[in-house]
Design a protein around this nucleic acid. Structure first.
Lengths: 213, 213
DNA sequence: ATTACCATCCCTGAAAACAGGGTTTAATGG
DNA sequence: CCATTAAACCCTGTTTTCAGGGATGGTAAT
């Protein structure tokens, strides 16, 4: 029994590579290839003849990206499986996709064998995530858990950012129209909250969180 | 006049994508495709019949990588052009390749058109680097120039590392068997030398230089 | 309505950072 | 070899940070 696939990617080269892999397998037929998510939506809407089994899609595409496309598919046609393939894999993207019930996620530099394995696994009803993706995901979850109960208020973020940008207490007080005592309190609270010893620790935290470059 | 190409990449999919692009162009013939640099070297050594015009290669490959391959080609067969295609582009790799006289460098997510343009440009005798690659390269050069005459002594590195690791002056003095006044002098000198305002600036510098995590 | 949290402000005393000097020794370049 | 420079070291006095309290009003959730 042949499975019907749709592929969406704005890079001709990747598309061709994928097609050549899939064409060596006789049990897949490619119904449609699209350059962005909008084309896929249109195709799915128009198509009433064929049963669509799987949509393979890139993340970054013009007009309608892969994340949006996945959300749309999962909210309108729950029986269509989705496999997302991407070059840049941030924990945020992975998180977002898992939340919107994607069926699989692979890196674009995956080998032929892994592609076929992922597709088979997904079509059999299971999820498939490559090891690298799982690692990125778990790593970020783990990091978040480590300091998950540390939440800084808007003001605190403001102050720690300015501290890390090398402003003195007095300068920060002037900037924010507060007394220098207030800023000192914030610094003190931040040092306690973040479990660091001094300004160096605060600076490192601020950098890690991206509050400063 | 047809040009003879060799392509090296351990990812079947990328290889297929590239082949499909090049096959639509009638003026290129693919002499050989390899899974790593070693195969290319062997082929070039054995081949005496055909003139090889261009080797397109990935950077990360098993056994012999693209950087090594490029160096070998440029030192043994100067008339063969090289185009490097990679996913991960660090300034170091780009630097290294430019030093060993690579003819072009593209990111793997480049579009079909850019691939063809790069190949044409290189075969016509010019170099081709994609905008993104040029940006990465220039950016790193610029950053290096900004603080190229700032050289820290071994002792200074030692001290700034410990400062950034949140040790107090007294603790650092104890660790290094010095008076705390000495450490204060170092801090002072470092602040002047590195053109920063305080401990936060020192910490940022230390992180940028990788003296601490 | 009460709890909880946030933002703001203030004080004191000790510790650390900082500014602005200094000396001695080692190395480097005419 | 001598002059210059840089590294490594130390001191004093002032300013800032830090630890440890405490206080007030506002707002959001229960």
């Amino acid at each position: 029994m042949k499975h019907n696939l749709i592929i969406a990617d704005d890079h001709k080269m990747f598309l061709d590579g994928l097609l050549s892999i899939l064409n060596t397998e006789s049990n897949y037929s490619i119904l449609y290839t699209a350059k962005h998510g909008g084309e896929v939506k249109k195709y799915i809407n128009i198509n009433t003849e064929e049963k669509i089994d799987l949509v393979i899609t890139d993340v970054t595409m013009p007009e309608v990206d892969g994340i949006t496309l996945n959300k749309w598919i999962k909210s309108t046609n729950k029986n269509i499986k989705t496999l997302v393939v991407s070059m840049h894999n941030t924990p945020e993207i992975i998180d977002d996709l898992i939340d919107s019930d994607v069926d699989g996620y692979l890196q674009k530099n995956a080998k032929k064998e892994e592609f076929l394995k992922a597709i088979e696994t997904i079509l059999s009803g299971e999820k498939y995530f490559s090891k690298a993706i799982k690692d990125i995901y778990l790593q970020s979850k783990f990091e978040k858990n480590k300091d998950k109960d540390i939440k800084l208020t808007k003001r605190e973020v403001e102050v720690i950012s300015l501290i890390a940008e090398e402003f003195t207490t007095q300068e920060i007080a002037d900037k924010l129209f507060l007394s220098k005592h207030t800023i000192e309190s914030y610094r003190k609270n931040l040092i306690t909250k973040l479990n660091v010893r001094n300004l160096a620790g605060l600076t490192k935290y601020a950098i890690k969180k991206g509050y400063v470059s």
